[in-house]
Amino acid sequence: MDFATLDMENRDPNDINNHLKTAFDDVLAEVDGTHSIDCIWKASYACFHSCKSCCYNIFTFFCGIWIACFWGLDFALISFAHVWCVTPILRMCMIHFNLCQKTFGTWVNCCCAPCCEVFSLIFSNIRVEKR
């Protein structure tokens, strides 16, 4: 493992969890004319950030490694299944379906196309006139 390339500042470089970015102002807001006492608002701000940070750190301390192991195993299983099962099956299906497509296309061009051309020539000479 190369920990030197691990970015410890930007831990979501692809913004896959952009929807989770919540600041105090995104959750709690007082409209004009309805304001609490300033010290309560400041204390609420401090409590929000402290509780959010503390609880997140506790949850990740007890569950983070186990959940990371689970997802690592899950993605390893998915990769294994795709490399050894899904991709070869899809490739086999593409080969068989390509043969079916060529066979059906040849049959249509040999049998149906001449009949359609004949009927189109027959019906192309019909003229409809209003009286």
Rank of each mutant, 00 (worst) to 15 (best):
C54I: 12
H19D: 03
F97T: 02
C55V: 14
P114A: 01
F123A: 03
N17A: 07
S79H: 08
C51D: 06
S53I: 01
F119S: 06
F61W: 09
D32S: 15
A76S: 08
L28N: 02
E30Q: 15
G105R: 04
D12E: 08
F75Y: 15
V86Q: 02
D32A: 13
L6F: 15
M1G: 15
C100K: 09
C110V: 14
N98R: 10
F24S: 01
S53K: 13
E9S: 03
D38C: 01
V31P: 06
S120V: 00
I58K: 12
V31Y: 06
N125A: 10
A43H: 09
L73C: 13
F59W: 09
L6A: 08
W71E: 08
V83Q: 06
G33H: 07
L6M: 11
V27F: 11
V128E: 03
N109K: 12
I95Q: 07
W71I: 02
H35A: 13
E129I: 11
C54Y: 14
L99H: 07
E117I: 08
R91V: 02
G33F: 03
N98W: 05
C116H: 11
C100F: 15
G72E: 04
C115A: 14
D26V: 03
N109H: 09
T22V: 06
T5R: 12
F80G: 07
N10C: 08
S53E: 11
H96E: 06
D26L: 06
Y56V: 01
F80D: 05
F97E: 03
K102W: 07
G33E: 01
T87E: 03
R131D: 09
A76C: 08
P114Q: 02
V27G: 01
C39M: 12
V83H: 09
G64M: 04
I126C: 13
C39W: 12
K42A: 09
R91P: 00
D74W: 14
K21A: 14
D25Y: 03
N17W: 14
V31I: 10
S79A: 06
E30G: 14
I37G: 04
C111G: 11
R131G: 10
E9R: 07
G72W: 06
K130D: 05
S50A: 13
Q101I: 06
C47V: 13
V118Y: 09
F70P: 01
F48L: 01
F123D: 00
I126M: 12
C54V: 08
V83P: 00
I89V: 15
P88M: 01
K52I: 15
D74N: 13
H82W: 06
A43M: 07
S53Y: 09
N57A: 14
N98P: 00
F62M: 02
M8A: 05
C115G: 10
F119N: 13
